[in-house]
Design a protein around this nucleic acid. Structure first.
Length: 264
DNA sequence: CGACAAGCCTGGTAGC
DNA sequence: TGCTACCAGGCTTGTC
């Protein structure tokens, strides 16, 4: 599920379960997930350390460990699971952190699209990844958002998902944002009025703030939100019309053709 | 069996 | 010509 609200959920989960426990051992079951680190070096970097706190940027989660940061990225199918005492590793546990208190934190990833790493310079890493401001960052103002979008073209859905512009909006939430902003997903970014952009900004921030508050749990979303109806043929929560599927830059998007009319 | 899936990355190209 | 911005396709493997 991992989009930003889910990563916020993982962040809270990690904070609630896994801080301040000394790492005894790090086990890597699939090295393809490791980024710029070997299993041996990852284990050495963490051995004897405690996870002392977390930071998030877009869909990346960082946990402070000694002089560096454990980096977790969840791809499309990543998850975390913590347990105490003996017990078998969960299915698809690709990296497992065994703590000295006989507790364990598993980084789970069914497909191998994701990353686990260890870095010393978090800001440098974010920079090298080319990530834009976090979508919930305090310094992402409406004016700043407008500047980021200025001169951009292509479907607005694609621009919202462009992590180099703004980090954290993925395929699912771009649909919710565009629904609430009443914009057709194919609307060209260069066709948006200044008012459109400010509305988009406000909606985007609110959607992600609300969703992050619920840890990405669609069942807890307020009435009228689109995502619980994100399914071909489902009734639009606003007008009852038929939710329609569309492919935009290779990703499937869902929208209500009645509420989100194209601006030809 | 093929199509598809919440992620990102790479390489090619259109257009300034 | 050179650089960017944009996009198609790929990665991976489980599910429908």
């Amino acid at each position: 599920m991992p989009e930003l609200p889910d990563v916020v959920g993982f962040q809270r989960y990690l904070e609630a379960t896994s801080l301040h426990q000394r790492v005894a051992k790090t086990r890597v079951n699939d090295g393809r997930l490791l980024e710029d680190v070997t299993a041996g070096r990852l284990a050495r970097c963490l051995k004897g350390r405690r996870l002392e706190g977390t930071t998030r940027h877009g869909k990346y989660l960082f946990a402070r460990a000694g002089e560096g940061w454990l980096l977790l990225h969840f791809g499309m199918t990543g998850d975390l699971h913590y347990w105490k005492g003996p017990g078998t590793d969960p299915d698809y546990a690709q990296v497992i952190f065994d703590f000295e208190n006989d507790a364990h934190l598993a980084y789970i990833n069914k497909r191998i699209l994701g990353k686990v790493g260890f870095i010393h310079d978090m800001d440098g890493y974010i920079d090298r990844q080319g990530l834009g401001l976090d979508v919930l960052a305090g310094d992402l103002t409406g004016g700043r958002f407008a500047k980021l979008l200025a001169g951009r073209s292509g479907p607005i859905k694609a621009r919202l998902m462009d992590q180099s512009l703004i980090a954290g909006v993925g395929n699912i939430y771009s649909d919710e944002i565009l629904f609430q902003a009443r914009l057709h997903p194919q609307t060209d970014a260069s066709d948006l009025s200044a008012d459109d952009i400010q509305k988009l900004y406000r909606v985007m921030r609110r959607v992600l703030r609300v969703a992050a508050g619920k840890g990405g749990d669609l069942g807890k979303f307020p009435r009228g939100y689109f995502l619980p109806s994100r399914e071909k043929g489902a009734p639009c929560p606003r007008c009852g019309g038929e939710v329609t599927k569309i492919v935009v830059v290779g990703r499937s998007g869902y929208f209500c053709p009645q509420c989100q009319k194209p601006t030809y």
